[in-house]
């Protein structure tokens, strides 16, 4: 278990992180969500023993990481936001180097390298120099280098920044697979959909502080328990609107710019009923969108700003 207790980091006059408390249980996938400059990378650096907190403590299996970083380091893989690779070396040379400094050698090193190359889909390009790679390939190799020594906990700092959608999908699939295999994951991003996809528990950070945490559902419930259905049709008749109001008496039904908005509790599943009422009233629905609160809405709700501002 990795724990952060009252972490505080001050750089000269700037307070980068204030009173951060976090907990990662074995096999858990935890997201750290926040805009750029929120203090996510500094928190990660402290959690991974790279920088000392000004105050507070990091515990790995109840042992202080500040005093004894070796135990955590052996079990930890870190994927930094930067491409932490040697551009003049080939993919294989990079992996061999990082494997060797983790103490892998001989046949084991060769096997692990091949395994990782396969996992990140770079077997065909293993002998190519990294600087010739696309952004997505570099990102994949960046992840591979952190997995070589078979860590039990993986910290990923914005691993999909600046890459094409195809590579992003590949990386997310790879990470999802790692989580399913039982890897403990701390995933930071300002892409809420990635965090939503991969993580069971989410910490939301802003201006150096954790402003909210919990499961996706808990956090979204901070905003609202309702869902909104947006309907478009060729002709939205008054009769149809009244029929809906009669069937869903607790719902808030209103019309905005030729779109019918129906807000009701999330526990209801109204689409089949809505389509049936539409058919009965000779209304042809051309589009129906069910909207639930997103983490973006949660952040907006908590800070008054959007995540990507």
């Amino acid at each position: 278990m990795l724990q952060a207790i009252d972490l505080h980091k001050k750089f000269k006059t700037k307070e980068a992180v204030r009173k951060v408390n976090m907990q990662l249980e074995a096999g858990e996938s935890v997201g750290l969500l926040g805009p750029n400059g929120a203090g996510k990378s500094t928190t990660i650096s402290m959690l991974s023993s790279l920088i000392m907190p000004t105050n507070g403590e990091v515990l790995w299996n109840n042992v202080s990481v500040n005093k004894n970083p070796e135990a955590l380091r052996k079990a930890l893989g870190v994927v930094p936001q930067e491409i932490a690779l040697y551009p003049e070396l080939s993919a294989k040379e990079n992996l061999h180097f990082f494997g060797r400094i983790y103490g892998l050698k001989g046949q084991l090193l060769v096997e692990r390298t091949e395994e990782i190359l396969q996992k990140i889909g770079l077997t065909d390009r293993k002998n190519d120099i990294v600087k010739t790679f696309s952004g997505g390939m570099k990102r994949r190799l960046n992840i591979g280098a952190a997995l070589l020594h078979n860590p039990s906990i993986l910290i990923m700092d914005e691993p999909t920044v600046g890459i094409d959608p195809q590579s992003r999908a590949y990386i997310l699939d790879t990470v999802k697979q790692l989580v399913e295999e039982g890897m403990t994951l701390l995933y930071t991003s300002h892409y809420m959909e990635e965090v939503e996809l991969l993580c069971d528990k989410i910490y939301i950070m802003d201006q150096g502080e954790i402003i909210a945490y919990g499961t996706k559902e808990t956090l979204k419930s901070l905003v609202s328990d309702n869902q909104t259905i947006e309907l478009k049709a060729h002709i939205l008749s008054q009769k149809f609107e009244e029929a809906l109001k009669k069937y869903f008496p607790t719902a808030n039904i209103r019309k905005e710019d030729e779109i019918l908005l129906i807000t009701m509790p999330q526990n209801e599943e109204p689409l089949a009923t809505i389509f049936a009422i539409a058919a009965k009233n000779a209304v042809t629905i051309t589009s129906a969108i069910v909207k639930v609160p997103s983490l973006e809405d949660v952040f907006l709700h908590l800070t008054g700003r959007a995540l990507r501002d």
Partner: peptide
Amino acid sequence: VQWKVYDRILLAGV
């Protein structure tokens, strides 16, 4: 250091 490779080296216990 800038590429964070140095961090990786330190994390490997070097």
